[in-house]
Structure formats: structure tokens, C-alpha cells
């Protein structure tokens, strides 16, 4: 039986093994490759999507568990937090290699939705699950603050 869910506002379905992680359904079957594989064990956060608006690691999310729910990926993320985060990211050139950045952006948007004015500690805690091997962390922190400020303004 196919798994039906909402993907970036449109209906989507997957008719394969229901244990297949959402990550690989998105990437290999639905062609949304912005969401990345980095570890497969929920250590690095490169695969972060939003499930019903909250951060979720798609590499450990069997597609069966998103049936009837709403999935947002980097390709479809929108709204004031997303706009603020992505503008701030580009404004100070956060990305280096860029491979982790879809996950970083999604996590940052999820953080700001839950905590519109995050402190340094909030940023450390909320972003602790996203590894950047290029170590762009100084700019990630700054961009999140810039985004929060822009949303207030």
C-alpha cells in the first residue's frame, strides 16, 4: 500500500518498502536532492527536513511514519523565518562546500520558529545536531542572529 503524505504543500506518494527512510524516498524516488545524506545515523543533521513544521532527521524516519503528515524540504521551505534565514545566509556567505547547508538552514528555520530570539546558548543547543566539516559555525551563529533581528525589524 502506498504511503501518502504532503510534500512541500503538494500531495506525494511512495509505493515501495514502507521502512525506507524518508531521506531516500525524497532523493532517489521523488527527485528532491537538496536533502543530503551525511551519516545515516542521525549524527550530522545534513538530512534535516520539517515534519509538521518541526525539525526531523529524514535518515531515521521510515516513510511509513509520515503517512498523512506534512513534510517540508529545503526545496519548499518558505515563510518569514525561511526568508530571513536564507537572506542572512547569503548576505554573509555562510556556505563553504555547502553540502551540510540544506540541513543547517532547515535546522535554523526550525529553531527560529520555536525560539524567535535565540540566545547564544539557544543556538548552541538547537544547532548541536548539525555537523559542518568546513566549520562554518562562526557564520552560522551570526546568520541566525541576523535573521532573528531582521524578523523583528
Amino acid at each position: 500500500m502506498a504511503t501518502e503524505f504532503t510534500l512541500n504543500g503538494a500531495s506525494a506518494s511512495f509505493d515501495g518498502d514502507p521502512d525506507t527512510p524518508l531521506l531516500w524516498v525524497l532523493r532517489d524516488h521523488l527527485g528532491l536532492t537538496g536533502t543530503k545524506y551525511g551519516c545515516g545515523i542521525a549524527q550530522c543533521g545534513a538530512c534535516t527536513v520539517h515534519l509538521d513544521g518541526k525539525n526531523r532527521r529524514s535518515c531515521v524516519t521510515p516513510v511509513s511514519t509520515v503517512a498523512g503528515r506534512s513534510v517540508t524540504t529545503i526545496e519548499g521551505v518558505s515563510g518569514p523565518e525561511a526568508e530571513a534565514v536564507q537572506s542572512a545566509w547569503v548576505a554573509i556567505d555562510v556556505p563553504q562546500c555547502g553540502f551540510c547547508q540544506s540541513g543547517q538552514v532547515m535546522s535554523a528555520v526550525g529553531l527560529l520558529k520555536a525560539r524567535p530570539r535565540p540566545s547564544d546558548d539557544d543556538i548552541d543547543a538547537g544547532m548541536a545536531g548539525n555537523i559542518c566539516r568546513c566549520a562554518t559555525y562562526v557564520r552560522i551563529r551570526q546568520a541566525i542572529k541576523d535573521a532573528a533581528e531582521a524578523m523583528e525589524g
Binding site: R56, R57, S107, L111, R115, M127, A128, G129
Partner: peptide
């Protein structure tokens, strides 16, 4: 934490 809830993983 906000952004890294238990339910994230």
C-alpha cells in the same frame, strides 16, 4: 531544546 527536540531524531 528548541530546534533540537528529542523528536528531531
Amino acid at each position: 531544546a528548541a530546534g533540537l527536540e528529542c523528536s528531531t531524531c
